[in-house]
Design a protein around this nucleic acid. Structure first.
Lengths: 313, 313
DNA sequence: CTGAAAGCGCTTACAG
DNA sequence: CTGAAAGCGCTTACAG
């Protein structure tokens, strides 16, 4: 690879001057600038960001942690975050953890060693130490759709799960359902617990409680759309019909939820926008060398489609 | 952040010695090693990979380009690649391009400037310059599921699309279909053309030709599963039934394809394994400072499920 | 407006 | 077995 020095030599100037034109530093004579730019063009010079990072103490890269890239909600969120990072000149180191504590530790270590400027996390294992590991190194982190985010240093972009689950239960209750169950996430994600709690509270207000999946529920509220779709698959393979025999709800409103053959009743969340906003907050904090320490909670709409219906008599 | 120097000072040795114990260089006295390790532990030292990269001329990171993170096939492939990279101590810079030439250029530039050791590409726009941009910089690239990969320097992990489309057409033909159409990818991906070609050739062998989507086909072969699922959605919203009125096939066999409500007839491909293998080839080449220049073609099984049936009378 | 010099945090011969 | 020194490719005061 060619270096600054190569273009300096070819243009007949010093490395400092080349650096000045590249960084757009004002004090460079017009003719010098042109000469340097021509040299850059001729030898196809591309600055070495690694060298720059070392000096600047900023890697110009952000870390993104997602439990499961294969879940469209997480993929959309990561994609939104990545796009926003790119737009600001940052590259994105993305790693998926399958909510495994061990993989999370490895990812944290890799991010620390590579000196990422900040990180956004779309989900972690229950009781994960990942955020603390990063925060303790003064790396700003914002968590999106997360569950209990108790560390005050965290940035949080989240959904109001409690309200959302109240909407879900109100809807099901109105359809006559009295035997309901919550089904947690496929992976051991921390966010599962808060939705379970919201569900339980909403039932409690109506003098009901979770009958569990074994308790012949007439309605099942799944932790997210992917889980809801898996539940429908299982029920229907067992010969039950959704929603005739059992109603099912999701959470996230992934594109597939509105597919003609799925038509899932779910809670809407704007994954891409959450990703974009998370990066905005994280980069802002990184640039000012502080933690984010700020939370933003949005409450999602309930989208009623065709997987919920009147409770069977 | 603490540096090598901090631990050297605390352990009362030189930076060289600390470096030697960290890198596991043999010639270090046992007691010295212990002293250094204790110091590292006490001040929680983590090496700066950026500095190491600068000296070593290897960034220990790989680039991954995917057109659409939201497509489970690409997500799986990227996840498999990412996992394999991590297992070898590499981090993964992932960027999604939406098959936009402009974004592809930006990604290539970012990868070059960050000196990624190699890149794996799961799809590009038609006629994309992305691979050449990288190859010309002596960066090994392997393309997976790609379409026409004409550059001999490329590594290629691919499916035998021609054979696969022959299987698809044979299956449909046997069910009595004579009016068939191919539907290309949602994004302008290069891989679309080869599947279209295989489809056309298979029809031609039977004295048929593509009637196009407007030609009232009784069977539609989609470029991939996501497109097939979108086609089913569209058809059924227009009041047609799949497969009663129209049969539909996909390609990839994403997890959703086997869902009870989808049951898509499709061609199986092992995305995660393709990703793993792609990284293996790319890293091997990177370590030897050469291009991959090697191709591996697998032919996928046709999985017959419930979106294909006898042609309507 | 331009260049010499120091330094970012490592690694790597090389001496001792 | 250990350390001093040079160098990876940049940036950034500072002189001139």
């Amino acid at each position: 690879m060619t270096t600054l020095f190569d273009v300096a030599r070819r243009a007949g100037v010093s490395k400092s001057t080349v650096s000045n034109v590249i960084r757009g530093d004002g004090r460079v004579a017009e003719t010098t600038r042109e000469r340097v730019e021509r040299a850059i063009e001729e030898i196809q010079y591309r600055p070495n960001v690694i060298a720059r990072s070392l000096k600047a103490r900023s890697s110009m890269t952000i870390g993104i942690i997602v439990p499961d890239l294969t879940n469209p909600f997480h993929a959309e969120l990561a994609a939104g975050a990545e796009r926003a990072a790119n737009a600001s000149g940052y590259a994105a180191l993305i790693t998926h953890t399958e909510a495994s504590p061990h993989t999370e530790q490895d990812a944290a270590r890799a991010f620390i060693e590579r000196r990422v400027d900040c990180v956004v996390v779309t989900g972690v294992s229950v009781g994960s130490s990942l955020p603390a590991l990063l925060l303790d190194r003064e790396i700003p982190v914002v968590v999106a759709s997360f569950g209990e985010a108790d560390d005050p240093r965290l940035g949080v972009i989240d959904n109001d799960d409690l309200t959302a689950m109240e909407l879900v239960v109100a809807h099901l209750f109105e359809l006559g359902h009295r035997r309901m169950a919550f089904v947690g996430p496929l992976l051991l994600e921390q966010s599962g617990e808060r939705r379970r709690l919201g569900f339980a509270q909403a039932l409690h207000r109506r003098g009901l409680q979770d009958v569990g999946i074994g308790g012949k529920p007439t309605a099942i509220a799944a932790h997210n759309d992917m889980q809801a779709i898996a539940v429908i698959d299982r029920l229907e393979r067992e010969g039950q019909k959704v929603p005739r025999d059992v109603s099912v709800t999701g959470y996230d409103d992934i594109p597939l939820a509105s597919h003609n053959r799925i038509q899932l009743t779910t809670v809407h969340a704007d994954a891409a926008e959450m990703g974009r906003r998370a990066v905005e907050l994280a980069l802002g904090a990184a640039r000012e060398s502080r933690h984010v320490a700020y939370r933003e909670i949005q409450t999602g709409q309930l989208i009623v489609r065709a997987t919920t219906g009147r409770a069977p008599a």
